[in-house]
Amino acid sequence: MTLPTSDTRVETTVTEPGQRLLTVDGLTVSVGGLTLLDGVGLTIDAGETLGLIGETGSGKSLTSRAIIGLLPTAMDVTGSIVWRGQELLAASPAQRRRLRGTEISMIFQDPMSSLNPTMRIGRQVGEVLRRRGVPSVEVQRRVIEMLEHVGIPDPERRIGNYPHEFSGGMRQRAMIAMAMIAGPSLVLADEPTTALDVTVQARVLEMLRQVRAEQGSAMLFVSHDLRVISHVADRVSVMYAGSIMEQGPTVEVLRRPAHPYTKALVASVPAVRTRTAIADPLPGAPATPADRPTGCPFRTRCALAHDRCVEERPVLRIVGTDRLAACHVAEEVSR
């Protein structure tokens, strides 16, 4: 099955492969005196998939929500989020709303809390098209087509169902259909296959790859599953305690990490390293905004930590071709 053809999608800005779409620089999010994101920086070009990995609570989902502008008003956001040359942090709420669903869309991690329980699935999936003035008959046709594409059985009937009438996996597929129906330039995919079994997960990942190839869409693929990231991401950014620890081509980062945290993550996932039943769990507990250590935030769990790691916080620096790492001993780690 192929994606809907171009005449069935909402028109969006034409994007050339390799064109810089998104630049995030110094992104900091705080609330109540606690820093949740601390100077996050990343870039995404048209046609590429950037993986964002890290343990639960590292700031991955918060980063994607900050990009699309869906953070609570109590949170203070500083830094820069530039979309196609436009500074989004300076944009009006109306301007940001116009981008959502058409230029930038998001696949949320928890579809049960993200879908409106009082609205039928078909209406929710087609909402962005109706906002763009697409006729009702055409909206229904496109909704059925997209639901079929993501693997919803009998979509002509299912468009009349409510979210509680779908299984967890089907709700997640409906969320993906909602995010993809208008052919966005950037998809923020927050753990998009978590609720799916292996067979459906493979189908959804293939669909997302088709979107990238046929629409030229880029993706920020948020996941804690390094096995999935190793298959879908061109580049990867590794997050810990609200900061980026390492960035680079996915294959290089996973094969030869330059940061002790990345190395520990890879060692904890047997399928990424050796495909055996042996794994090395990460020592200690992750740092939190309330107890983030001075210097390197990972130093309390790092066997290579020394005095400089306590006194001086490492910054992202070049450690190889297209590789960055925030570690004082990155060269030693990557040997």
Rank of each mutant, 00 (worst) to 15 (best):
G85W: 01
G85I: 00
E87D: 13
L88K: 03
L89P: 05
L89A: 07
L89W: 02
S92L: 00
S92K: 08
P93Q: 05
P93Y: 02
A94S: 11
Q95N: 06
R96L: 09
R97E: 10
R97A: 13
L99G: 07
L99V: 03
L99T: 02
T102D: 10
T102G: 06
E103F: 00
S105A: 11
S105E: 03
S105N: 08
S105I: 08
M106F: 02
M106W: 00
M106N: 00
I107T: 00
I107S: 00
I107E: 01
I107F: 00
I107Q: 02
F108M: 09
F108G: 04
Q109P: 11
D110Y: 08
M112V: 15
S113H: 13
S114K: 12
N116W: 12
P117H: 10
T118E: 15
T118P: 13
M119S: 14
M119D: 12
M119R: 15
M119V: 15
M119L: 15
R120W: 08
R120M: 08
I121D: 10
I121G: 06
I121F: 07
R123L: 10
R123M: 10
R123C: 05
R123Y: 12
V125L: 01
G126C: 03
E127W: 03
V128P: 05
L129M: 09
L129Q: 07
R130P: 11
R130E: 15
R130F: 07
R130K: 15
R131T: 12
R131E: 15
R132E: 13
R132T: 10
V134Y: 04
S136H: 10
V137E: 14
V137H: 09
V137F: 00
E138T: 11
E138M: 05
Q140V: 11
Q140G: 11
R141W: 04
R142E: 05
R142N: 02
R142P: 05
E145S: 12
M146E: 04
E148M: 04
E148T: 13
E148N: 12
E148G: 13
E148S: 13
H149V: 13
H149Y: 14
H149I: 13
